[in-house]
């Protein structure tokens, strides 16, 4: 009798723990996407924290050193989005540089709280006018 009670209790505890774990996992999964992948399904990422990867579009970088706000446009040559990042640009941050920003979309603008500069020896930004190899870009930024 006692064994049955323990078994039932054990299964119940495991079930509750399982549900909690799956919920927590689902809530804290952070997807890594390029702008064009986000554009395909904005609803699917609504309110979710994501890691947005891409290149810094030349001529779009603005840094307000009074409010410490950095704005630029992130692009994968198919789709571009404006990014607002609260903080100073990292040292290696420059136009055409590969970056990964963590944050959320708010009204079409990506509000980031973490900005990583990705340097890689095997990815070269294309010459002006040439398309970007999106798969290569994604691989490089991961």
């Amino acid at each position: 009798m006692r064994k049955v009670v323990y078994a039932v209790l054990g299964v119940a505890v495991l079930a509750v723990a399982g549900i909690m774990i799956v919920k927590a996992l689902n809530n804290s999964l952070v997807y890594f996407v390029l702008p064009n992948e986000y554009a395909r399904d904005p609803q699917g990422f609504a309110g979710r924290r994501i890691r947005l990867g891409g290149l810094v579009e030349p001529g779009t970088v603005k840094f307000n050193s009074q409010t410490l706000t950095l704005t630029f446009t992130i692009t994968d040559s198919i789709k571009s989005y404006p990014v607002v990042y609260k903080g100073a640009p990292p040292d290696l941050f420059k136009p055409d540089q590969g970056v990964v920003v963590d944050g959320r979309f708010k009204n079409g603008t990506f509000v980031g709280d973490q900005l990583l500069v990705k340097h890689s020896s095997n990815y070269r930004p294309p010459k002006p006018g040439q398309p970007i190899d999106v798969n290569m870009l994604k691989k490089t930024l991961q």
Binding site: M20, I21, A24, L25, N27, S28, L29, V30, Y31, F32, R49, R51, K138, Q142
Partner: peptide, 14 residues
Amino acid sequence: GQRVTVGPPFFDQV
């Protein structure tokens, strides 16, 4: 094939 990371909130919550 989706690239994901599990953030610290998961570990903290559980």
